[in-house]
């Protein structure tokens, strides 16, 4: 069990697709720093603001990291592409294993549930890492250029209006960032589980990877004014989107989806195993 777990983790974290997904995420995070943060810190245009001229608040770390700059195309692109990026490392591996007959080999040596548990954990962790590492890198890079001026409602450069955790943003902005990183990790893992489930429904590896992305876009845009739009990862995970959602319902919604994907995948794996034993 332990060696299987280790092997799945190695397969999830040491592969070209993981590096590619991470590289795309880091590239977008770096481009956001170059196009937003660096001009705020060095451009002559922003010099009066940096000097506090006429009492205007300078751009702060808390108002300029990738999660809060909805006006930056790279922020938007990052959160838009997230459902696709998180599936790249390992989400289609179960589909590939089934196609290649690898699962059959594994089932003869260990229980299907062990393999399934190791696979789902590795998929979840790799997806979470791909989503959070670029954000952490962006946060650290932003800290190198802009001051840690705490959010103040009268400053005019920080969030206002109905938003999830707005009180935390003003009382403990670092906790606010940590909460969003945890939410991003958690939701990204479940998006990747969605791709694993699609591996049993579609017969094309590319479709397995793209299916969760299509679902998220559908939820975001086609959902229109319905309440479901609030739970779409593209708007839910980006603090700038101003999502007026209750965290309890977010947890219930994604816990339900996660359970659904796990049960469906478990049932399919069990079916595969039963068929294997019948044939042998």
């Amino acid at each position: 069990m332990r060696s299987l777990f280790k092997m799945e983790l190695k397969r999830a974290f040491v592969n070209r697709m993981f590096v590619l997904a991470l590289a795309i995420g880091l590239l977008l995070a770096a481009l956001q720093v170059m196009s937003v943060v660096v001009p705020f810190a060095f451009s002559d245009v922003w010099a009066p603001v940096r000097n506090g001229m006429k009492g205007v608040w300078p751009h702060s770390f808390y108002s300029s990291w990738i999660g809060v700059t909805g006006y930056s195309v790279f922020s938007t692109l990052y959160y838009f592409m997230l459902p696709l990026l998180v599936c790249l490392p390992h989400a289609s591996s179960l589909y590939a294993d089934l196609k290649a007959g690898y699962t059959g080999n594994v089932h003869t040596r260990v229980k299907a549930s062990y393999y399934y548990f190791a696979k789902m954990t590795a998929v979840f962790l790799s997806a979470g890492a791909v989503s959070v590492v670029p954000l952490v890198a962006n946060l650290l890079a932003t800290m190198l250029f802009l001051p840690l001026v705490l959010p103040d409602p009268v400053a005019g450069i920080f969030f206002s209006g109905a938003r999830m955790w707005l009180d935390v943003y003003y009382s403990s902005p670092n906790l606010y960032i940590v909460l969003y990183l945890l939410l991003t990790f958690f939701v990204s893992g479940i998006i990747a589980w969605c791709a694993v489930s699609f591996g049993f429904l579609v017969s094309n590896g590319f479709m397995v990877l793209v299916a969760p992305f299509v679902c998220c876009v559908f939820l975001s845009f086609v959902g229109g004014a319905s309440l479901l739009t609030r739970y779409a990862p593209i708007s839910l995970l980006s603090p700038y989107a101003g999502n007026a959602t209750q965290i309890l319902w977010v947890i219930v919604f994604y816990a339900f989806l996660g359970t659904l994907f796990c049960l469906f995948t478990g049932w399919q794996v069990h079916r595969q195993e039963a068929a294997l034993w019948r044939n042998s």
Binding site: A41, R50, G52, P58, L144, F145, L146, P147, L148, V149
Partner: peptide, 10 residues
């Protein structure tokens, strides 16, 4: 670097 950036602001 972070310390220097923060000290540059009043």
């Amino acid at each position: 670097r972070v310390d220097a950036v923060n000290k540059a602001y009043p």
